[in-house]
Design a protein around this nucleic acid. Structure first.
Length: 127
DNA sequence: TCCTTGACTCAGA
DNA sequence: CTCTGAGCCAAGG
């Protein structure tokens, strides 16, 4: 299911850059990655967040996968125990969750600098 | 080949 | 706030 290796690597590269105590969303990450060659732009926009999700499902253990949450600021449910672990690790990093299991994206969402993006051929949403 | 199933998101109800 | 359905793509049964 996972897109091609090149796409996943781009996802992991971005996730690795998220600082402790900060988070990014699936869609937020996807918005930085250009559509693969031959992919229709409008179609890509509709599926890219899921592609990131699929990529995360098979991510290597050495990256801070726990810093990726969904657009509602909640931990996406999935089979296995990693969802619970994710919340625990985030709390260790100082992330607070409200009674609905939601964190404050306005404060915690992390955006790479333009310079960082440009150096890696990624998209700058503010451009 | 057809159908289901996803670590998604957004707009409606 | 919660719950659906739609939109879209690729793998696997």
């Amino acid at each position: 299911m996972g897109r091609d290796r090149r796409y996943r690597e781009r996802v992991y590269q971005i996730v690795r850059a998220i600082p402790p105590g900060r988070v990014m969303t699936y869609g937020g990450i996807a918005a930085l990655i250009p559509p693969p060659r031959g992919t229709d732009w409008t179609g890509y926009v509709r599926v890219r967040a899921r592609w990131v999700g699929y990529s995360m499902a098979e991510c290597p253990d050495d990256l801070p996968w726990h810093r990726v949450v969904n657009a509602q600021g909640r931990i996406s449910p999935r089979p296995g125990l990693s969802a619970r672990l994710q919340r625990a690790v985030l709390r260790e990093e100082g992330v607070r969750f409200d009674r609905n299991g939601r964190l404050d994206l306005d404060r915690l969402f992390w955006r790479p600098s333009r310079r960082w993006l440009r150096a890696r051929g990624l998209l700058d949403p503010a451009a």
